[in-house]
């Protein structure tokens, strides 16, 4: 099949960027979307033109490195599918596609379709963890975990940190990403001691990074390739509100002896 692509080209963060048009003949239906871009890039290099920059690594839908808007939809808008797992059999001859990077103030463009998502790392660094120094853990079976809780924790933990939720959100909120981590750890007994601190720290960091507030539109859930549910946002809001109400300054300065 033959496709027409309109691709956002931007040399670097300072450049203004604009759309370029490319004709891509000879696309095979078994190719993945990124393989189609590989083919185009090979042709561009042969012509002496700068290939299109896009992030990717595992190409198995698990590392979260890939991501772009296809015709305004994050990852192309196919249920549970990252763009690296999207195959050309979903498109047809003559299709015209518009490829753009994630657009959000907290995700500045690096080049073309590649953006900087370090803000996500900083949110995790603020509180998205359980503090357990290496070597200090009790036996793995010491605390039984209800199967349902383990399963719900796993559902939320499946987030790959791709940023599609932010890109799909009209407010550029990161509530689904943040909620997924809060919900994952809140479902486990091991996550309880830091539950309040975690919700406060992560949500405050999210605000500092310039992600706007969630207004419950739900585009994120539809765009999420790992099908993270909106209920994680409800859970993290509840945790945040409870934590904010009960927040106390730390006591006990210093220790005994």
């Amino acid at each position: 099949m033959k496709l027409t692509l309109h691709v956002w080209r931007q040399k670097n963060a300072q450049d203004r960027g604009r759309m370029f048009r490319y004709e891509v003949p000879g696309v095979n239906e078994h190719m993945s979307f990124l393989e189609m871009l590989d083919v185009l890039n090979e042709r561009l290099i042969e012509k002496g033109e700068d290939p299109i920059a896009f992030d990717h690594d595992c190409r198995e839908g698990i590392c979260g490195m890939c991501g772009m808007m296809i015709n305004g939809k994050a990852h192309g808008g196919f249920k549970g599918t990252t763009v690296c797992q999207l195959h050309m059999r979903h498109f047809k001859d003559g299709d015209e596609l518009y490829l753009e990077p994630w657009r959000a103030a907290a995700f500045p463009v690096i080049k073309d379709l590649a953006v900087n998502r370090s803000s996500f790392d900083r949110i995790i660094a603020a509180g998205g963890f359980i503090s357990v120094p290496t070597g200090s853990a009790p036996d793995g079976n010491a605390i039984p975990v209800r199967k349902l809780d383990a399963d719900l924790a796993m559902d939320a933990a499946a987030c790959i940190g791709c940023g599609a939720c932010v890109a799909a959100c009209p407010n550029s909120a990161a509530a689904l990403f943040v909620g997924a981590k809060i919900s994952h750890l809140a479902h486990l007994p091991q996550g309880q001691p830091e539950r309040d601190r975690r919700a406060l720290a992560m949500i405050r960091q999210m605000n500092r990074e310039g992600f706007a507030n969630c207004s419950n539109i739900g585009e994120c859930e539809a765009a999420c390739p790992k099908e993270i549910k909106l209920e994680v946002i409800a859970q993290s809001n509840a945790d945040y509100i409870k934590a904010a109400f009960t927040e106390r300054p730390e006591t006990a300065i210093g220790g005994a002896g």
Partner: peptide, 9 residues
């Protein structure tokens, strides 16, 4: 043990 304590589901 370490991973369970970290919250690996």
């Amino acid at each position: 043990d370490q991973c369970v304590a970290q919250g690996v589901p």
